Deep mutational scan, measured.
Amino acid sequence: KFGRVHERAEGPAKILAIGTATPFHWVDQSSYPDYYFRVTNSDHLVDLKEKFRRICNRTMISKRHMFLTEEILQKNPNLCSHNEPSFDVRQDILVSEIPKLGKEAVLMAIDEWAQPKSKITHLVFCTRSGVDMPGADYQLIKLLGLSPSVQRVMMYQQGCFAGGTMLRLAKDLAENNKGARVLVVCAESSAIGFRGPSEDHPDNLIAQALFGDGAAALIIGSDPKMGLERPIFEIVTTAQTFVPNGDCHLALHLREMGLTFHCTKDVPPTIAKNVESCLIKAFEPLGISDWNSIFWILHPGGNAIVDQVESTLGLEPNKLQATRNILREYGNLSSACVLFILDEIRKKSGREGLKTSGDGLDLGVLLSFGPGLTIETVVLR
């Protein structure tokens, strides 16, 4: 008597548009150690500064975009301390800036989509910054002038794996609601975790050397309108798992001094060791076991992770080039990073006149991972 209210779509979910945005301000990685130790009044920690310089040199990052300028840091000195309470200051900045950054990426996506924004039916927003109620999803709806009846899902504090999570959720929403057009937004800022150095917490140096700011937005829907919408990728399958006891290797915690970062040297080999089982589960039903026969979007948690995944799986050097390019130009953008790589690989395919948006290949994989050593596996066509 009370059956399904919403009719299912006929076809699989497809990515119809991609937009990205970054803050205008950026830092050069080669000179960042001098800048970082100067603005945090830590130049007296000579040995720690040299250690940080070595870490920065190993990241293979060229530059990173950041909202925090020297002027902002001078006005808010607690942000430059390692342990002073600064959460309220971070909140005041990020509750406002995260939706604005997301808006810039959304406008780029809508411009490519070339359809009225009134056709957006759902919003899925993800960030690890600016936790608030009502959330960044609500603020973004107002900034864009979208209908208050847009169906919203707000996900805070997920971390680097969440780019894949957003695709998984959007696929379910698009395929189970005929005519749905799902706006996916990942907006991230390193301002939540920026803090001064400490000899007692070397993990913090890794975070300060890796993370950048950026937002990515996608429009996802099934059954694209012929002649009006141009699909870029099809989302074939999605899956999530985590490595048992992985939280002892990688975890982040909200504290009075901001978001703290805990990471062990076992993260790269542990991820590399567990990736292939995810690939087998995803691609065995499709008859694929040659990992060089697919295109790759791999989250660059750090250069060591990229190198070890490449080595463990025997990947050809060009397979992870898009990942390395984004890491070099932006650093680790947390949940937004794989979506930047997705954009990079389709643009490169277009520039080179390849037959598909995925490096000329039919199928590919998007792998994202993060806290708890959670792994998201997304098969794309």
Results as ranks from 00 to 15, higher is better:
Ile55Gly: 04
Arg53Asp: 02
Leu298Gly: 03
Arg381Ser: 01
Leu333Ala: 03
Arg346Phe: 03
Lys265Ile: 02
Asp132Gly: 08
Leu380Thr: 15
Gln115Ser: 03
Thr20Lys: 04
Pro231Ala: 09
Gly370Val: 12
Ile326Glu: 02
Gly19Arg: 02
Ile341Gly: 11
Phe125Leu: 12
Glu97Gly: 07
Asp290Ile: 01
Ile98Arg: 04
His6Gln: 07
Phe87Asp: 14
Lys51Ser: 05
Leu144Trp: 06
Leu380Asn: 15
Ser30Trp: 14
Gly360Lys: 05
Met108Cys: 06
Ala17His: 13
Val275Asn: 03
Met133Arg: 05
Phe24Gln: 06
Lys281Leu: 12
His6Phe: 05
Leu320Asn: 01
Thr20Cys: 12
Thr20Gly: 06
Ile18Gln: 03
Phe125Cys: 13
Gly353Val: 05
Gln240Trp: 04
His82Pro: 12
Ile345Cys: 02
Arg8Asn: 00
Glu10Met: 09
Gly331Ile: 00
Pro23His: 09
Tyr138Glu: 15
Leu327Val: 07
Glu329Ile: 00
Cys248Arg: 12
Lys265Trp: 02
Gly314Arg: 07
Leu73Val: 08
Leu140Cys: 03
Glu50Leu: 03
Phe283Glu: 03
Leu259Trp: 10
Ser86Glu: 12
Asp111Leu: 04
Asn325Lys: 12
Leu123Ile: 12
Gly130Trp: 10
Gln29Arg: 03
Leu143Val: 11
Ala336Met: 00
Thr374Asn: 14
Thr356Gly: 05
Leu48Arg: 05
Asp362Arg: 00
Asp290Gly: 06
Leu373Glu: 15
Glu316Ile: 02
Val378Asn: 15
His25Phe: 15
Gln139Glu: 15
Ile55Tyr: 14
Val106Ala: 14
Lys347Ala: 00
Leu373Gly: 14
Ile18Arg: 03
Glu376Gln: 03
Asp362Leu: 00
Glu376Val: 01
Leu361Ile: 00
Gly353Ser: 11
Arg351Ala: 00
His262Gln: 10
Ser357Leu: 06
Gly358Thr: 04
Val306Trp: 01
Ile271Met: 14
Trp296Thr: 07
Arg346His: 00
Ser277Gly: 09
Ser86Val: 11
Phe369Lys: 15
Ser118Val: 00
Asp359Phe: 00
Ile235Asp: 04
Ile271Tyr: 11
Arg351Leu: 07
Thr264Ala: 11
Thr312Met: 11
Leu315Tyr: 00
Pro99Glu: 07
Leu228Ile: 14
Tyr35Arg: 14
Leu73Ala: 10
Arg128Ser: 14
Asp343Met: 00
Val131Lys: 11
Val243Thr: 14
Phe369Gly: 15
Lys281Cys: 04
Ser149Trp: 07
Leu123Val: 04
Gly360Val: 05
Pro317Ser: 10
Glu256Tyr: 06
Ala9Gly: 07
Arg90Trp: 10
Glu376Gly: 01
Pro33Cys: 03
Gly11Arg: 04
Thr40His: 00
Leu363Gly: 12
Phe125Pro: 01
Pro244Tyr: 03
Ile232Tyr: 01
Leu16Tyr: 01
Arg381Met: 00
Leu298Pro: 07
Val5Lys: 08
Gln308Phe: 01
Gly364Leu: 01
Tyr35Pro: 04
Thr241Asp: 08
Asp290Tyr: 03
Arg90Glu: 02
Lys49Ser: 02
Gly246Cys: 14
Cys337Leu: 04
Val378Thr: 15
Thr270Phe: 08
Asp88Pro: 08
Arg53Gln: 13
Gln308Glu: 14
Pro33Trp: 12
Glu276His: 05
Glu97Leu: 02
His44Glu: 09
Glu310Lys: 09
Leu354Ser: 04
Cys278Gly: 10
Ile341Phe: 00
Ala136Glu: 11
Glu284Arg: 02
Ser31Val: 02
Ser277Tyr: 03
Tyr32His: 11
Asp28Gly: 03
Leu45Lys: 12
Gln308Met: 13
Asp47Met: 14
Leu250Pro: 00
Ile235Lys: 01
Ser81Lys: 09
Val275Pro: 00
Pro300Cys: 14
Asp362Gln: 03
Cys337Met: 14
Glu71Trp: 07
Thr264Lys: 02
Lys49Cys: 03
Leu279Gly: 04
Gly11Asp: 10
Ser42Arg: 08
Val309Met: 04
Trp296Ala: 07
Asp362Lys: 00
Asp88Tyr: 12
Thr238Ala: 14
Pro269Ala: 13
Pro134Tyr: 12
Ala21Tyr: 02
Lys142Ala: 07
Gln29Thr: 09
Val267Lys: 10
Trp26Asp: 01
Thr121Lys: 01
Ala109Ser: 07
Glu10Asn: 11
Tyr138Ile: 06
Gly246Arg: 09
Tyr138Ser: 14
Pro268Lys: 02
Leu327Thr: 04
Glu256Gln: 10
Glu256Thr: 08
Ala251Trp: 14
Pro77Trp: 00
Asn41Met: 03
Leu373Ser: 15
Thr22Tyr: 13
Phe37Tyr: 07
Pro85Lys: 10
Met60Ser: 13
Thr22Ile: 08
Phe233Val: 01
Phe2Ile: 10
Tyr330Trp: 02
Glu344Thr: 02
Leu363Cys: 04
His253Phe: 10
Leu254Gly: 11
Leu366Ala: 13
Gly19Pro: 06
Ile326Gly: 10
Ile297Arg: 03
Glu10Cys: 08
Ile15Thr: 08
Pro134Leu: 07
Tyr35Met: 00
Ile110Phe: 15
Ile294His: 03
Glu70Phe: 00
Arg324Thr: 09
Glu97Ala: 11
Leu45Gln: 03
Leu146Thr: 03
Lys319Gln: 02
Leu354Cys: 09
Pro268Asn: 06
Val5Gln: 03
Ser277Met: 07
Asp92Ser: 13
Ile55Leu: 10
Phe261Pro: 14
Asp362Val: 01
Asp88Glu: 13
Gln321Val: 06
Gly258Pro: 12
Leu228Cys: 14
Ser357Glu: 04
Ala114Arg: 08
Phe242His: 13
Ala21Lys: 09
Leu48Phe: 08
Ile271Cys: 01
Gln321Tyr: 01
Gly11Phe: 06
Arg4Ser: 14
Leu361Gly: 09
Glu104Thr: 03
Met257Arg: 11
Lys49Val: 05
Phe24Asp: 10
Gln74Trp: 08
Gly145Trp: 00
Glu284Ile: 04
Asp343Asn: 09
Gln29Tyr: 01
Arg328Lys: 02
Trp291Asp: 00
Lys265Glu: 14
Tyr138Arg: 11
Ser277Gln: 13
Val89Cys: 12
Pro231Met: 03
Thr312Asp: 14
Glu234Thr: 12
Ile232Met: 01
Leu107His: 04
Thr59Ile: 03
Gly3Glu: 10
Gly372Leu: 14
Pro12Ile: 06
Lys14Trp: 11
Leu279Lys: 05
Thr374Gly: 14
Leu354Pro: 08
Val267Met: 08
His44Phe: 01
Glu10Pro: 12
His65Pro: 08
Leu354Trp: 05
Lys51Thr: 08
Ala251Glu: 13
Gly19Ala: 03
Ser349Glu: 08
Glu84Ala: 09
Leu250Lys: 15
Cys337Ser: 15
Cys263Ser: 14
Met108Glu: 10
Ile110Leu: 15
Arg64Met: 03
Asn303Gly: 14
Ser147Gly: 07
Asp34Glu: 10
Gly370Asp: 15
Ile375Pro: 14
